[in-house]
């Protein structure tokens, strides 16, 4: 499967948006660890802005940045991918369920669906086009890319891909480690307009080849392992440096995706 990639976006530790991050990702400037702060969801109406939590804010920031130059954001189908979904919301509900008075907030409940970020996005931009939300644990970015490229290839339409994850609060955070918030997005198109690169994707029914252990990695290499959405970093670095690359993305314990990135 192949498609063209345009307009990447990124929000993560020391990576505050694509314009500021591109020289860092390209290796022209050093990466410095800095807390990733949730951007203001400017596209949301005030009521929804109050209701949208940190996870939705990261997802919408990436989606907004990737579509900033689009004449009509509502004209894009979307694929949202996240391993954890909105863990803060899920944890709040679990805490409420196990408190003596069991009072679940209705707003928290409708925010707990895995497609909450997608729902807020389509409301924000007034889009009635199809949207799918995927899980995928540590393979969530690969899952999103697979589904998005499949849709571009078979339906011939541009797709906005958005991958995002944030740390889970206690006690779930102890059993599902996510080191920091991270969100990335891009436009995938059937044609080359505005594209940074051509992507060719292959599903490989074999485990990822063994690489260095997490302890041996540092900088952006280590960062990629701290969040399911940050698994996109090797792709983002190739895009920023405008260099060809063969990126291997984890999907399952016994399978991965092989992504060939060719700048254009």
């Amino acid at each position: 499967m192949r498609c063209w990639l345009a307009s990447p976006a990124v929000f993560g530790p020391g990576l505050p948006g694509w314009a500021a991050s591109a020289p860092i990702l390209a290796g022209e400037q050093p990466w410095v660890m800095a807390e990733a702060l949730p951007p203001t969801p400017a596209l949301l109406a005030p009521g929804d802005r109050r209701r949208a939590g940190v996870t939705v804010r990261f997802a919408l920031a990436a989606a907004a940045e990737a579509t900033a130059a689009e004449p009509d954001r509502a004209a894009l189908e979307t694929v949202f991918a996240s391993g954890n979904g909105d863990g803060a919301v899920v944890c709040s509900i679990l805490d409420a369920l196990h408190a003596p008075d069991v009072a679940v907030s209705p707003t928290l409940f409708h925010n707990s669906v895995h497609n909450a970020a997608a729902g807020y996005w389509h409301i924000a931009v007034g889009s009635t086009l199809p949207s799918v939300s995927l899980g995928g644990h540590d393979g969530a970015f690969a899952a999103g890319l697979l589904a998005a490229m499949g849709n571009v290839a078979t339906r011939g339409r541009a797709v906005l891909l958005c991958a995002y994850d944030t740390p889970l609060p206690a006690p779930l955070g102890a059993v599902r480690a996510t080191a920091f918030p991270f969100a990335t997005a891009c436009l995938l198109r059937p044609g080359p307009e505005g594209a940074l690169a051509v992507l060719e994707l292959r599903y490989v029914a074999e485990p990822l080849p063994p690489g260095p252990s997490a302890e041996e990695l540092e900088g952006l290499d280590a960062l990629a392992l701290g969040n399911p959405a940050a698994r996109a970093l090797p792709l983002l670095r190739a895009l920023a440096a405008r260099r060809a690359a063969l990126v291997r993305l984890p999907l399952l314990a016994d399978a991965h995706l092989e992504l060939r990135v060719s700048p254009c």
Binding site: G85, S131, V132, S133, L134, A143, Y203, A255
Partner: peptide, 19 residues
């Protein structure tokens, strides 16, 4: 992941969660 392992399959897997 469970269904795939249970059926001995090795193809792509996706989990869709749109409420």
């Amino acid at each position: 992941r469970y269904v795939r392992a249970r059926l001995g399959l090795h193809g792509p897997a996706l989990t869709i969660s749109t409420a």
